[in-house]
Design a protein around this nucleic acid. Sequence first.
DNA 1: AGCTCTTTGGAAAACGCTTTCCTAATTGCT
DNA 2: AGCAATTAGGAAAGCGTTTTCCAAAGAGCT
Lengths: 343, 343
Amino acid sequence: MPRGSGKVNLVDVARQAGVSLATASRVLNGSTRSVGAELRERVRQAAAKLDYSPSAPAQAMARGGTDVVGLVVPDISDPYFSTIAASIVRNAEPHGLIITLASTERRFEREAEYVASLRSQQARGIVLVGSRTTNEEQLEALRAELEAYTTAGGRAAAIGQHKLPADTVIVENRSGARALAEELVALGYRRFAVLAGPADLLTARDRLVGFREGLRRHGVEVAARDVINGEFTRDGGYEAASELLERGREPECVFAVNDVMAVGALSAFRDRGVRLPDELAVAGFDDIASLRDVWPSLTTVRIPLERLGEQALGFLLDEPAERSRTRRFRGEVVVRASTPPLR
Amino acid sequence: MPRGSGKVNLVDVARQAGVSLATASRVLNGSTRSVGAELRERVRQAAAKLDYSPSAPAQAMARGGTDVVGLVVPDISDPYFSTIAASIVRNAEPHGLIITLASTERRFEREAEYVASLRSQQARGIVLVGSRTTNEEQLEALRAELEAYTTAGGRAAAIGQHKLPADTVIVENRSGARALAEELVALGYRRFAVLAGPADLLTARDRLVGFREGLRRHGVEVAARDVINGEFTRDGGYEAASELLERGREPECVFAVNDVMAVGALSAFRDRGVRLPDELAVAGFDDIASLRDVWPSLTTVRIPLERLGEQALGFLLDEPAERSRTRRFRGEVVVRASTPPLR
DNA sequence: AGCTCTTTGGAAAACGCTTTCCTAATTGCT
DNA sequence: AGCAATTAGGAAAGCGTTTTCCAAAGAGCT
């Protein structure tokens, strides 16, 4: 039942309770200093009666810091990132942290802007979720901002992005893709095509490299014209798959470097009348939960997405280390219906 | 290239530029008051040289407000909500708004807490994305918080939640479900089952009600035992579908009140050996983009999710109205492969 | 040349807290 | 009973901005 009159501040509460500002503050923020039971009660009552709500900005000023953690992702509507975001939000809540969300729409240059904004907000920490990496100039700008942020006392963690001045959480894309490749070879596949995502995306590149490594161990190669770049999205997958068919290539198995692209490819193939999975096998990467119901169910590499976010937040909450830390997570190959044993 | 020494504030900038604090402030925040070209330049240089970053909390205090907009959703990893979130983030950015994200994990009582937190943060606006509605007590608590928030000058908008003291964006669930039902009848279906989501969720209930209305127009009923409640999630759909089969019911078509449940049901049916879509048709609701690639592709009702977020934000940015406004969006039936004409 | 208007710059108040520094009062000793 | 040590409350100094209020200087008149 709110009292409707203007803003109520601590002074009002103190006056109402008949105590000093200092006492009111001490009662309300559970400070170390003790306050007599009687006054404590009076203050509590007054605050309740006036429906007092402390001003977070004022507290931030006085305390010299906030409980804000900034989360910067390339695209919050992509299930890969929204899963990570969910785990971060979930884990942040019990610590009383407030999450600020920025979605860069996969425009890398905005990451630096957001970091700057977060510094201005006096955010306590930043979690940066992986993005492009090849443009050295932009990367340098980002590094500079991060540096400025951390020297100002902020904590930074990155997911899937090496070489940043921050604690980082890494997915072992390369070894995961390697293992997947070997599994596919074991299933009998020899002729592969890869929907490789953007050429300048580290994650995508690592997966391609690992995949080729795995094949090569068994003497299998994938020609350059069987590798198609495209956006790291569902539509990117659809288009790359269409392009593949148009080139007249006839692989036995298509590896899309992430699940989102893989399901796009599934539709593309189906739209062209390809009978899945018998005529063509498809594999993905990530094991996105909300995509587990597609048919044929995707063979993929499971990444512990929730743990990624958890760990990144853990870094922020830990004591700062002198050198930046790295935590690696492995993927696990999951074989499903989209890649039946060949023949 | 950050300067590494402690925090730099406006006073430092002013001193470096040899001007007063007031002048520095005026230059840096593009105030109305004009400042001579020479001083302006000196201040700019000083700020750049010191890598000055204004303190957002201090600005909030002095200005008496922030550029924060709070977004409260039931579950950010659900594509329905992450799509809305994405549209809000995207539209907020050009206005210089900062989005704070709270995910209640579908625990309704936390909405009120988050609103309280947002009031404390002096957030400029709140977008509350639909949740339960039947517990009058909790609803009252939420109303009280919202009331307190708005009388303190904040703006509130709700999506899919009526009867809140806020501008609201409504999806016409009922008419959408009605149209879907009629379409299904036209395709020849007569025996239906419904995976109805949680009984206390308004959205779910409206869809069920509308669906029945549509059927009734053609003299078709769906018995109570063919309506199965469950969680509004993928697993909820899977379980409800399993339950349906265990009951030995043999509908011709199953309507899941949202797509996420529908794809869960798809898997459940497939796991039990039901041949889709010929043996059993399935329809959903929402037309979630990332689920468009499932097979059989879902017949569903398309909701303009992006527009929902856009409109909610629009309400926040508009001049406040004396009475709270409502904007309704209609859904559009989309028939796909999961409901082939019967026979 | 003597006025009154504009500009332009600075001093200082205000925003709402937290926390240090005092002071008064109580407690625990001897 | 007298003193040190502890406890509880208040006054006031920040925290980093924005913005009002003044004053000085220059511009435009007659």
